[in-house]
Design a protein around this nucleic acid. Sequence first.
DNA 1: CATCAGGGCCCTG
DNA 2: CAGGGCCCTGAT
Length: 342
Amino acid sequence: MVYTAEERYHISQNMSLNPLLLSKVSIKKLHPTSPFHFDATFYKPDHFPTPDNIWRPGIRWQTMRWAGIPLGLKFENKGTLEKPEICLFIFATQPLNETYLADLINEIRYRYSLDQDLTSFYRRFSSDEQLGPVISRWRGMRDLNCSSLYEYLMIAIVLQNATVRRSVSMMSNLLQKYGDLLEFDGQRLQCFWEPETIATVTESDLRTLKVGYRAKTIRRLTETFVSDKVNEQRLRHEAYEIQRRVLLDLYGIGPASVGYILSAVFHHVDELQHISPWEQKIYSKLFFGCDPQEPIPAKDLIIYLTDLYGGYRAIAIHYFWEDLFWKWKNGEAEWLNDLIKL
DNA sequence: CATCAGGGCCCTG
DNA sequence: CAGGGCCCTGAT
């Protein structure tokens, strides 16, 4: 196995620690709706790398904590675009009963959008001048969210006002200190902590992990979940406007983070209320060929995207975005280098 | 060496 | 509703 620089960094950080060995395996077959693009769904070149997962074509290893039990998941592609099948290996320290597994599979189907039906999206835009070619390249791709809401909030916090390199370091420090190192299927990956685990941690404890002023935010968000003031399962069943308001009321969470959460975590395919400056520059160049230093005003971009892709704005943007970042990963979009702030 | 801005958000005026 | 401040880091 050949590792990237980030993976080698994570591995070297993990070498000295004692992993929890997950030796019991359960195996389940999953059948997503068709078409299903395994690699474009299970790997997002625009996500900053975190040591809780690793991807290779046809395989994704991922940790997950479900009902308090740390798990190692291995998703293996066993099907085709038109006849999808995923073999899911579930690693744990103990055997898992069928009730637990059924519940887990339900959660995975929800988080990974395995039951999503995009046929109306494809029908409407497959001959669109801009989106059509992108759809034909990535047909069957879903948005990916492996995390719980709480975990996603932690990711959003380390993302804010930081370069990618620093986000990677903050996330890695937090996982090493408060997560659990798991070993399964020859991989060593970190598993997220539960809110309860860091409920009594002080702000200065967190600051030693070089998260800076985010320490306060991490504490306040954690407290919100420990006290069950916000509950992910309940919030899932609320209306869009309620979800938006609850999320905006969270300390440290503003319009940029909320937009990501509503689309990725709660699967709202039409979410587009906010375009942040770095996204604005990229859209201006992508859709209008503008110099990123003189971008189109964000409100005009929203009007433009709403006119063209209303009803499916988040998923349409996701397709454009991933298409662009796959190109960038393959060295075909060098102009992005200056805008990504690695 | 100092200064600055970064894949935001809070708080103040 | 505009703008300063926030932790820390690497770029200049």
